[in-house]
Design a protein around this nucleic acid. Structure first.
Lengths: 244, 244
DNA sequence: CGGATGCTTGAAGCTGCTCAAGTGAAGTGG
DNA sequence: CCACTTCACTTGAGCAGCTTCAAGCATCCG
């Protein structure tokens, strides 16, 4: 059930090669390290077996042991209140980190559920701290990545109207999914309408209607989970609160 | 206008004494440091002149230079969208830190406004990183404090109904303001109704009505900014989503 | 093919918003 | 010291947006 039990022993050569193309290269392999340091650094990273959709990466209340780097797939972190209402705190996409929520109280405060088959690297937190001492450049890097993860959350919570939050969400996911320099405005939402509505704080029906309205106004094209941004600049205006 | 220009030279003896009783003692003076290290550590902390209400500590877009430790008072961090709507991201109270929002993009993404006359310590970020290298125990401490600041935000955003978020907010502020072990359920809100409503994502009128209803149900007593929790356990139930 | 799931759409009702007026406390100036 | 202003908050009435309940479709899977 737990991921840690499924980790493979690191095959250093293959691993180093894999890391070279990882989006988290900057975390694992800061530029100014020698090849020897690099090996030591990568020796702490365990690549987990592929996680199928529906798997729980960790639960609220679990002891904090590691940071997870998402190589591919999508994971949501969420919590449930006593009334059964689910609040989605964040969606984690390819190239992003999760687990930082537990650094302070030493215990995870939310659950992490795999939405799309994912592959993650497990980075024991103990080692992160230990290595930060040996490699000072890593220290600032960890702080930056942690800050980035948290500030990601601030983006979509803003906005009074549902339309504003929805537009902000679509743009946010698009930016995080698209390769830099891409000219395509197509992408596939890796999460269900219900997950999105729980994230945005509205009912799934309302979200469905808002998407339909944006489509009627020729700003997006929706086909199930496939989204195409037809008028990104006007969407941007809506997202920042200009009513048009 | 900027705070940095007003900092006083550190008077080491007095400062050390002041720090001994500071709520952020754990950040500035980790237990296992010798007196010599301690002096070096404290030498980077500048205590600013008292900040009057209405003063901006920093603005969105400002270059990131320092972390601020709030010794007393109250500061809100907020941003404005193009439609003029204000979103309050966080209230910072005595003993808390602010400025972490800017670690990653190296630029503040929100404004920080003093709500109640405050006294802050300015901790240049450069020094935080530098000292973390010399004092490994400080490294984990900084990460923990950063995590604590961010996880604070998660507390009140949850909850579908306005009543739930309001109850959670009152309990949250109470816990952060009351001395540990206190048996008093009185406290004074340091911020206006409008600030609270912007934080909770509702109109000031709605907040006013929700507070009035909680008072009618004998769960709180409200007198302007003075709040007394009459039935904390029932409030807690509401806050976690049990409708009663 | 049948069932399940996830999404959309419709209608009715409620929550929360807007606009507007009223109240009370604190500060201002004569 | 007291009218006057101002500001923050409260309260009321009407309206818009969102939710809930319910039904209808399309897609996926056995």
């Amino acid at each position: 059930m737990r991921v840690h039990a499924e980790t493979r022993p690191p095959e250093l050569g293959a691993l180093r090669h894999a890391c070279r193309f990882c989006l988290l290269h900057d975390l694992c392999c800061p530029m100014n390290l020698g090849p020897c340091d690099l090996e030591q650094l990568q020796s702490v990273v365990r690549r987990s077996a592929p996680l199928p959709a529906g798997r729980l990466l960790f639960r609220a209340g679990d002891r904090f042991t590691a940071i997870y780097a998402l190589r591919s797939g999508c994971i949501k972190s969420f919590s449930l209140d006593a009334g059964g209402h689910e609040t989605v705190h964040s969606f984690h996409l390819r190239g992003e980190l999760l687990g930082f929520d537990a650094v302070y109280p030493d215990t995870h405060r939310c659950n992490a559920l795999v939405l799309e088959a994912s592959s993650v690297c497990v980075i024991p937190y103990r080692d992160v701290v230990k290595l930060s001492v040996d490699f000072p450049s890593l220290h600032g890097q960890v702080l930056r990545l942690m800050s980035r993860e948290f500030s990601k959350q601030l983006m979509c919570g803003e906005g009074s109207g549902g339309t504003q939050r929805t537009a902000a969400f679509l743009l946010n996911v698009y930016e995080r999914l698209s390769r830099p320099g891409s000219v395509e405005f197509d992408f596939r939402l890796p999460m269900s309408r219900e997950d999105i509505s729980n994230y945005l704080g509205m009912s799934p029906e309302t979200l469905s209607r808002l998407l339909a309205r944006l489509q009627r106004k020729r700003m997006i094209a929706v086909d199930r989970r496939h989204i195409r941004l037809l008028d990104p600049s006007r969407l941007k205006l809506i997202a920042i609160g200009v009513d048009c």
